[in-house]
């Protein structure tokens, strides 16, 4: 039996997408879990970007970790993967814009991506470039899932009657 490269990709895609889905789920779950324990610190991390009044930052800082955990869980079970991936992509774009804007304004902050950041110790340097590259990688994962939302071991698959 001859398998063409094309049909091989047809077989491989759901597996690649599955890895992307689970990877993105892990990203959201970790990011949310690291913030959810101290909502005041999460508020300070958001406020550190100086793009909204403190009272708004407080609400965003409190809501964000729960949204991240919910997105992580939804991706983990694979429910409406295309939509959750699209929302993930949107959030990544917002985060990248935020970091780029902090960078452009010369703010010296920790992005608070995987921590309640905000504060940078003395001698510690900002890592905006790396933060943006990492978020771009996550954006790529999200984009891949929007494009190819069919994955293995997903609730979507079960609901659609796929094996």
């Amino acid at each position: 039996m001859e398998t063409s490269p094309q049909s091989r990709m047809t077989v491989a895609w759901p597996w690649i997408a599955t890895a992307a889905r689970l990877g993105l789920a892990a990203v959201w779950l970790v990011a949310g879990a690291l913030k959810v324990g101290d909502l005041a610190a999460s508020a300070r991390a958001v406020n550190a970007y100086q793009v909204m009044p403190y009272d708004t930052a407080e609400v965003v800082g409190a809501v964000q970790p729960f949204l991240e955990i919910a997105l992580g869980l939804l991706l983990l079970i694979g429910l409406s993967t295309r939509l959750t991936a699209a929302i993930s992509a949107l959030l990544m774009v917002i985060f990248i814009a935020g970091i780029a804007s902090a960078w452009a304004r010369g703010l010296r902050i920790d992005c608070g991506c995987f921590s309640t950041g905000g504060e940078l110790g003395r001698g510690e340097d900002t890592a905006y470039g790396i933060d943006i590259l990492r978020d771009l990688a996550f954006l790529a994962l999200s984009g891949l899932l929007v494009w190819r939302p069919r994955t293995r071991y997903s609730l979507d698959g079960i609901l659609l009657g796929e094996r």
Binding site: V59, L74, I87
Partner: peptide, 15 residues
């Protein structure tokens, strides 16, 4: 999904 995300946000706001 929209409902789940809405509820998650609400939990954060309530917290």
């Amino acid at each position: 999904v929209v409902l789940v995300l809405f509820v998650a946000g609400l939990i954060g706001y309530t917290a």
